[in-house]
């Protein structure tokens, strides 16, 4: 069972830091404020994830950020039984979900599905974002995790 003392996965995984040129810095800064921010094109208004230097639809370089509603649906999932990182040696099984955001042209984000890692997972289930703070990370960071909407607050 994955430990539930604050974070879904144990400490020891690498800390996310902004990409070169601060391309995605706003996403991580927003997560720390417990907001879900994704890139939005100022040219055509469409969202994209991950962040790019150019809009891959209208090819504008004028890209900004949008805070979107922190919810989505499970598009796919997997249950990991074999750890490939020392920090996860005792953490299996755990569940990784691919969540699509219908409010943002169904872009997708990877996260963990909080709760019992052995429970069945249903594609299409509605989920809400849970902002998981890692104040002891080097540097500190916040992950965007997911919880079944039916599980309640």
């Amino acid at each position: 069972m994955a430990p539930m003392n604050g974070s879904y996965l144990p400490a020891g995984l690498p800390a996310p830091v902004p990409a070169a040129g601060d391309l995605d810095a706003e996403h991580w800064a927003a997560a720390a404020r417990h907001e879900l921010a994704v890139q939005r094109c100022n040219g055509c208004g469409r969202h994209q994830w991950g962040p790019e230097w150019v809009c891959h639809r209208c090819r504008s370089f004028d890209l900004g950020w949008a805070v979107v509603a922190p919810g989505g649906t499970i598009y796919s999932w997997e249950r990991v039984w074999h750890p490939v990182h020392p920090a996860l040696a005792e953490a299996c099984p755990y569940v990784v979900v691919l969540v699509e955001l219908p409010q943002a042209e169904s872009i997708r984000m990877v996260g963990n599905l909080l709760g019992d890692p052995t429970a069945p997972v249903a594609i299409g289930a509605e989920v809400d974002a849970v902002f998981e703070d890692h104040p002891d990370g080097e540097p500190a960071y916040t992950l965007v995790q997911w919880r079944l909407r039916s599980a309640g607050a």
Binding site: L13, P14, A15, P16, E78, V80, V96
Partner: peptide, 24 residues
């Protein structure tokens, strides 16, 4: 110790090996 760019959107969530990439 740290990760950035595309790997930062998967690795902290425990998705990092080819098997994990393609199982999804």
């Amino acid at each position: 110790r740290t990760v950035s760019g595309p790997m930062a959107y998967t690795m902290p969530y425990g998705l990092m090996s080819p098997a994990q990439m393609f199982a999804m």
